[in-house]
Amino acid sequence: MELAPDRLAAQIADAALAPAYLIAGPETLLVLEAADAVRTRGRELGIAEREVFDLEGRDIDWAGLQASFDAPSLFSARRIVEVRLPTGKPGKEGAEVISAFCARPPDDVVLLITAGEWSKAHRGKWADAIERIGVLSVAWAIKPHELSGWVQARLRSRGLRADRDAIALLVERVEGNLLAAAQEIDKLALLADGQALDLATMQSLVADAARFDVFRLIETTLSGNATQASRMLVGLRAEGEVVAALMPMVVRNVLSTAQLARVAERGGNVAAEMKGQGIWESRQAPFKRALQRHASSARWDRFVAEASRIDRMAKGRADGDAWVALERLLLAIADASAVKLVA
């Protein structure tokens, strides 16, 4: 079956897990939360074992994945086998492995596939096979006219009430960025103290222009201001931020720019691609400047691979100083002469 991410979370809240899930789309926050809902439900059902196969700029070990499907669980009756496909394309070998799994799904495996890119062109027999035995959930980009409703529903889910003007202010501030909106709403849940939010209250709680946040950091980096980006990163660290909390937005924006570079290279409509990704006109200038400095999609693929490596560092899955590596990546993006820092 096909379910929207929010309906997926509601559907599995008190139900058994299906043999397979494919969760994909450009709205990274919704993909992450839907996948987390599957993992959480798995833990509630006693599924303690989890194995991850991550593309991370190279080919997945599809033979290893097949072997994992065939091997018995070591520590629990069932396990989650997670496959991360940033491009949403498993290739011929991967499609065959996934289709074979769906033809005869093992009793002890729940297959969870997540992808950062998705369109009708990504659909294939392997995705149809997953939909027949499990769930396909696509997190389509939230359109500008839909954002107010999404924000209102998110506020309500956190026990908050806000009037129309207050919601409009929050929508304007986050500029279509769902992760930014979610973070602001989580902050409001802590600060609002149960009071209804009007325009004045919302302004006092969210309008902190002096704060160095990750969204301004990314905009500054894409715009090419290396010195300012470095200073902002220092400010974030001083405020107690951790790299792991910054990386979802860094990865998302680097992936978005990499896709824009691919569209530009093949002579496609970059403006239409930006619109399709939900990059509002007011946010497009930094992306355009970044593409002028680094026109090669291969270079952006290097940036994506490095961002993935830093994310693993931040989570303790790779060696190295994540703060130093992140600064080098941001400087390489902001200043074309510094690309060697991530070589």
Rank of each mutant, 00 (worst) to 15 (best):
L233P: 00
E219Y: 02
E184H: 09
G224T: 03
F212T: 11
R237L: 08
Q203D: 11
I185Q: 01
M202K: 00
I218A: 06
L190H: 07
L205W: 05
L191E: 12
S230F: 09
Q203K: 12
N225V: 02
K187R: 14
A200M: 08
N225Y: 05
A200C: 06
A210S: 15
R216W: 04
T201Y: 02
T220R: 03
D198A: 01
M202R: 01
Q195V: 15
S230A: 15
D198V: 00
S230W: 06
K187Q: 11
A229S: 14
I218S: 00
D193G: 08
I185L: 12
R237V: 07
M232H: 02
F212A: 15
R216T: 11
N225W: 03
A200F: 05
V234I: 14
A196K: 09
L222Y: 02
I185G: 03
S223V: 08
M202D: 00
R211G: 04
L197K: 03
L190A: 14
R211N: 03
D198E: 06
A209R: 10
L197W: 02
A226R: 09
D193A: 15
K187P: 05
V214F: 01
L190D: 09
S204E: 15
R237Q: 15
A207L: 15
A196C: 11
I218W: 00
V234F: 12
A196M: 11
G194N: 06
F212P: 15
A207K: 10
D213E: 05
V234S: 14
